[in-house]
Structures are given as C-alpha cells and as structure tokens.
Design a protein around this nucleic acid. Sequence first.
DNA 1: GCAAAAGTGTTCGGCGTACACCCATGC
DNA 2: GCATGGGTGTACGCCGAACACTTTTGC
Lengths: 224, 224
Amino acid sequence: MTIESAPAPQATAAAARRPSVAVLVVIFTVVDSALQVLLIERSAPPAEGHWAIPGGALQHGESLDQAAVRKLAEETGVTDVFLEQLYTFADLDPASNDGSVGVAWFALVDPARVRLAQRTAWRPAWWSLDDIPPLAFDNERVIDVARDRLINKLQYTNAAYSLLPEHFTMRELQEVYEAILGRPLDKRNFRRRLLATDFIAATSEQRAEGPHRPARLYRFTSRS
Amino acid sequence: MTIESAPAPQATAAAARRPSVAVLVVIFTVVDSALQVLLIERSAPPAEGHWAIPGGALQHGESLDQAAVRKLAEETGVTDVFLEQLYTFADLDPASNDGSVGVAWFALVDPARVRLAQRTAWRPAWWSLDDIPPLAFDNERVIDVARDRLINKLQYTNAAYSLLPEHFTMRELQEVYEAILGRPLDKRNFRRRLLATDFIAATSEQRAEGPHRPARLYRFTSRS
DNA sequence: GCAAAAGTGTTCGGCGTACACCCATGC
DNA sequence: GCATGGGTGTACGCCGAACACTTTTGC
C-alpha cells in the first residue's frame, strides 16, 4: 500500500493495532412501484435485534469488488448486476472506536431473479425506502448516500438495466424510474428521452396483458 | 463496524490477519495555467526511488477525514480547503497481497498558500499532469480517477474557490477552468455562466496590472 | 496614439417540459 | 360498443456555443 514508511513514525505504532475492513452492500430493487432496500435483522450483538445493511469482513486475498460480489450473492443469489462502490465510512459504529472502516457498495437487482437467503437468524428482507425501521449503527446515512447516487446514476447511465428482466414494456421501465426519482414522469417525454439515449431498443415482440392494446417489448442495448 | 459476526464464520478467520488502512491524498493545484499534482519521491522500499501520491496509515482513534486533513497539512501546510473522498482501492500494491486498502481523497489548493514540506528525503514536488513520471504502485489509476472527478465537480460546484486567493480576476478564474478542463473557453460565455451560478460575486475593487484597463476583482460567495 | 487586456450582446440549435387525443385489444 | 391501457406530436422556454468590437489604461 502507498504508505510513507519512513517519515511517518506513527505508522508503525498504528500498525500494532490494525483496523479491520468490512464491506457493506446496499441492495436496491423496485417492486410494486416502490423502491426497496434489503436489510438484515441482527441476531447477535452488537445491535442485536436491529436491522442493518448486509455486510461482512473482507476476506484474505479478496479484492473489494470480490467481497461485494460475494456478499451480494450470499444474500440474493444474484450475480452480474449493477454494482458500484459508494463511499468508505470510518465511524459507522461509534461504540467501537477502533479505526475500522466500512467500504459501502450499492447494487441494483431484478426482484424476479432474487432468491433471498433462507436463514432463520440474520434473515434478509426487503424494506420500502419510505418505511425503514430503526437501523443499527449509522446505516441510515449509508442508505441516504446510496439513494442520492442512485438518483444521479439513473439520469445519465443505463443502470436501470439491472432492475428489469431481459424484456420489458415502456410502462414498466417508467415505473422503475418513477419509483426511484419519487415523482411521476410524463409518458411521452419519458419515451422520447429514453429512446434518444440508445440505452434501450425496441424488440419485435409484444405482450398482451388485458383488454387493451398489447405493449411492445424493449430491451437494454447493453447490460453493463 | 457493520459486520455480521454470526453467519460469517470466515470473518473470524479474516480477523486473524487484519489488513491495514491507508489514506492517500491527490493534491491538485493550478500554476502557470497548468494543472499540477503533488507527488513524493519514495526514499525507502517498496518502490524506492519512484514517485507516489502522498499517503500514510490511518492512525488510532482518527477518522478518515481527519487522516486526510492531517496528511494534506503535513505536505502543504494548508487546511480548510476543498477535500473530498474519491475512491477506495484494495489492490494498489500488487506485490503485497495482504488485503490492505487505500482510501483515496482529493484536494484543491491555492499555490500561494502552500508551503511544501522541506524534507531531504520523501520530498514533495509539483508535477504537471501531462508530464507525470513513472509512479509507484498503481498510482496512475488513482490520479486518473481524481482528474475525472475534478472535471466533473467543476461543472456544478464552486470547488474552484479552493484553487484561488480571496480575490481574483475573471481571467484568473477562467485560466483555472481551462487548465482543468484542458480546453480553451469563450470569454463571454464563461463570464456569463459563472455569474449566473451565484458562486462568485463582483467586489468593488480593481487590479491594475499593466498598460491596459484594470480588471475588476471577484470573490466566491461561499467557501465550502 | 498605440499596444494590451478588459469588458460587453446577439443568434442559433438542442433539450427538457407541458399538454390531449387516437389506437388496438378483450370482453 | 365500451372500457382499458398503448402509443403519438407540437409549442415554448432555457441553456450552451459561436462569434467581434469597444473601452480603459500605461507608456
């Protein structure tokens, strides 16, 4: 690591008590037009009984990306989705003032692909963002940062690809955007803008779903 | 830290070999219409003789912010400037595969306020961004990320306040922007756009600097 | 008066936004 | 034939980009 070993005599002192590195993954999805986040009920101290963002220690030989991918897969069974580093927090747990850091990531998953871990303890569950329970540590702050980033990313990237199945209707896509942005969007403007980006393209398929005109299906031109 | 102690038996194993946490600070300035970055010549292994981004281990009881502030002050004597977390890297030093992480920050400093640390070894020096020497570890990547973020920040924040003295001319401000963006800007459009943001305001002062009309001085309305 | 940098306005194209009606289908 | 959601076009305001001349000063 890029440490100036020589001019920092404190470095050696600090090394005597090496901090741990944890990875947290804020996992978002959109179900029933609501933005939801995956939380885990802690079944042991500290903060037993509180809900928290899934996370765990960085393992030996593992890169940060790998740890985030692993953590996401452990909880949801999903891989190959939007997953991006968010921010690194040093003081999430004010009680343990040991210099531990938590590297937070955020992920977007299609609810249809998720298989939540079926543990009895430490069980994960989806929580709607405007109905979050009291969280352990300072996890509210992490979720706030993640949500801001998500709103931002949505404006100029194809990140939504990760929240939807291969094929989807324009309405489904719009509902995802509306859930994340938290406001209604104009149908015509939305369609025009999204098609202008080249993130998505029409397929030749349609989907009939009721007593009305069938909807054309679209796909993301790139999934990454 | 938000670790799931119970369902992650690996966590205890990983704790046996706790990784270290370092903080790196990419310090930018603009001198002579050139974007420059502060580098340090390493005087001991690893990577002895190579230049690197200033950094050091997180000290006990210190938050990440505090470590970044301290590191910046050690090298430049400057405090109270734009300083923001950038990204956290786990594999900067491929040789030491010990799970150490480097939390990179980036800072913007006014060259007039800087007093570089005057060591004989580990001496810091400014390097123009388009003339960077071979760097230790993977520090080129860190600088690339920092530069991208800087360009981005400049578009919609008042970050430039940190690169200029209290009072400055419109031309000086434009030169800072041009150095960072790497392209010339139109004088009239630049002036109009910046004044429209309310980041800056005119003062009643002028500065006469040669056989030509004196320039009005401006200031940032907010310095944070 | 002349050299040098400061200061100023207008035009144009693109983009986001507001807004209302016809279309295709199942029953 | 009617209820239901799918699909479409236009007008306007704002913003970024291009572009050239006058003003103020020191010598």
